[in-house]
Design a protein around this nucleic acid. Structure first.
Lengths: 244, 244
DNA sequence: AAGAATTTGTTCGTATGTATG
DNA sequence: GCATACATACGAACAAATTCT
């Protein structure tokens, strides 16, 4: 076993077990090199790996040593993005994945949501309405996107499943990176927004009524309508398989 | 921007764009250090990061330089495992995630499967039957597990969604690591196997008939029955929300 | 506000074990 | 079996950055 791997595992264990908490500091490189009886380059290679995994961050000149970071899905995001590139994941597959996870979150939310969470969802849709604007050309695309994210955050929070939350979040970002340019360029942006808002309102109503299967079906339909125009013709049938 | 980060990005870009294919070799460290005009340690730190991301592998003494690897979900697996530990993901959440993705894959498979893929599923269930054995105590737990994996592989292959395939695969391994000991220790292993086989047969029949929603519902029920005993009492209701 | 002290970033030289041909 | 080239690992040295006095 490599020396740097031993160092990685020791520090990783300390962090994941909770012996080291976010915000705490690692010893300096020179101290680690004494404590662990390895050379400085070995310590540095180990720190690079831990940094790549999103567990620590080190800055030049920081006298307190590397900082233990709170968990972030950055590493997950990175490996999924890599997956999407090297496996050439199609937009259709990504959207399909989102349709599945998002509708599951909504199904659960319809069952488990509190009144506060429902209010949160309503607030988000209200913000979407404000961003879409009333007069032609007054739409704030960016604010609309933020409100949309807030809505979905409220939903996955109500679903109670952090894994679903993180995965949908990661995949949403990957999807948006692929097509945000085309969405921005659409000349009927405002019409798209209005339709999207209406869809969201229907979903919320179903969640309020506690009808999970209906809410889930509506959400799949909404996502299909929104993203299908950007998906290859040959893949839309696989998406429609989720709609019935 | 750090020197090693530039090196990481350059090599990463070459790999993800396809300019470097799996099996091909990177220049040796000394050559990279000349080509990129950086020191040796910088090259090494970059290679460590790329290795942590599962993109390359280097061995001491290899005169051909680091090898570009085919994509593997190892990095994804690693970051999800980290996520499960530091976010303290419960078994309930993990099982719920599998219920959602697996049943979605089955729903799609019922629509899109070919005859060959259906035959593959039948073969896997046949292998499960063989592993469960006919006489008491003759069960081969490991072979049963392998056959079960083969079944789900055939299903996700038929679903046509590689992202679902990889995510279910990763989460299954995490779940099994958490409870395989308890499953092995169960004294009614063979009864569990027989019930599982029956569930699989029902799912296959629904897939054969093209009834996706039924197949999906059956698969959720099967997974619930199999894993619920290991899930905390307080979490089973969230699992049952997926059953209706 | 400015400088001292310490840390990380980076380079380089050296020694050692290992795989290839 | 041997020579060669390689990765692994160590440590000294200097530059750049940050914090603290």
């Amino acid at each position: 076993m490599r020396a740097y791997e031993r160092v990685v595992e020791q520090i990783e264990e300390a962090i994941e077990s909770g012996a080291l908490s976010p915000g705490e500091r690692l010893p300096s490189e020179r101290e680690l090199m004494v404590q662990l009886a390895v050379g400085r380059s070995t310590v540095r290679e180990a720190l690079r790996v831990l940094q790549a995994r999103g567990l620590v961050r080190s800055r030049p000149g920081d006298p307190h040593g590397a900082e233990v970071l709170p968990f972030s899905p950055a590493a997950l995001h990175k490996s999924m993005t890599t997956l999407a590139r090297v496996e050439q994941l199609s937009l259709g597959e990504l959207v399909q994945f989102r349709m599945v996870l998002d509708s599951a979150a909504i199904l659960l939310a319809a069952r488990l949501r509190t009144e506060e969470q429902l209010a949160e969802m309503n607030k988000a849709v209200e913000a979407m309405r404000a961003a879409a604007g009333t007069e032609p050309g007054a739409a704030d695309t960016e604010a609309f996107g933020r409100a949309d994210v807030a809505f979905h955050d409220a939903v996955v929070a109500a679903s109670g499943n952090k894994l679903i939350q993180i995965c949908t979040d990661v995949v949403r970002q990957i999807v948006l990176r692929q097509i945000s340019a085309r969405i921005d360029a659409a000349d009927d942006r405002q019409a798209l927004m209005r339709r999207s808002i209406q869809h969201h309102e229907e979903v919320i109503e179903a969640i309020r009524a506690g009808d999970g299967p209906l809410a889930a079906r509506l959400s799949r339909r909404a996502m299909y309508d929104y993203y299908a125009p950007y998906v290859k013709e040959s893949e839309t049938s696989a998406l429609r398989a989720l709609l019935e």
